[in-house]
């Protein structure tokens, strides 16, 4: 089963660094798994804990938030706030029995196309090993679909 499992991954990327790094990866033709789908935000400081939770609830198997390197945030400290929120979601996931490794905070600069591709590969691989997320697992085990 897990051999054929293709995870669905949502990446919230800030406009100034991670989204640009993703474009950079593209223009350098660096391959990374197509499982990663990017949602652009002005700053990772905008990524609400509820957005991450809803992503899981809608069917994501893994979510990561990608912002600027520490000290490089276009809005001073949005990336640091995002990192703390990610920690909070991790704790909440643990409490409800979902592996907290399914969510992660990653930082990179706009020029780091290589890093974008590498982290996308690594994260996808990790989620592949962790298996289907809550919604897909319920679908598989009980034929249920998500609410909300």
């Amino acid at each position: 089963m897990s051999n054929t499992f293709e995870p669905e991954i949502v990446a919230f990327c800030c406009h100034y660094c991670a989204y640009t790094a993703a474009d950079m990866a593209g223009s350098k033709r660096l391959s990374y798994p197509p499982n990663v789908k990017i949602i652009r935000v002005p700053c990772t400081g905008k990524v609400d804990a509820i957005h991450i939770m809803k992503a899981f609830q809608k069917g994501a198997d893994g979510v990561y938030v990608a912002g600027c390197l520490e000290g490089d945030c276009h809005f001073k400290n949005g990336n640091l706030r995002a990192a703390r929120r990610v920690q909070r979601v991790q704790a909440l996931l643990d409490e409800i029995g979902i592996d907290s490794r399914r969510v992660e905070m990653i930082t990179m600069s706009a020029g780091m196309g290589e890093r974008f591709a590498k982290t996308a590969r690594e994260f996808t691989e990790k989620i592949r090993e962790l298996g289907p997320g809550p919604v897909k697992a319920a679908e598989r085990d009980f034929g249920l679909s998500a609410a909300g």
Partner: peptide, 30 residues
């Protein structure tokens, strides 16, 4: 930057262009 919108405990703040319903709609679409 939207930091206030993401931290507001009453969900009383929306960042225009990146409103919660738009982000949720994207997730739904996906």
């Amino acid at each position: 930057c939207g930091t206030c919108a993401a931290e507001c405990p009453a969900r009383a703040i929306q960042l225009m262009r990146y409103e919660d319903d738009q982000i949720l709609a994207k997730l739904e679409g996906l």
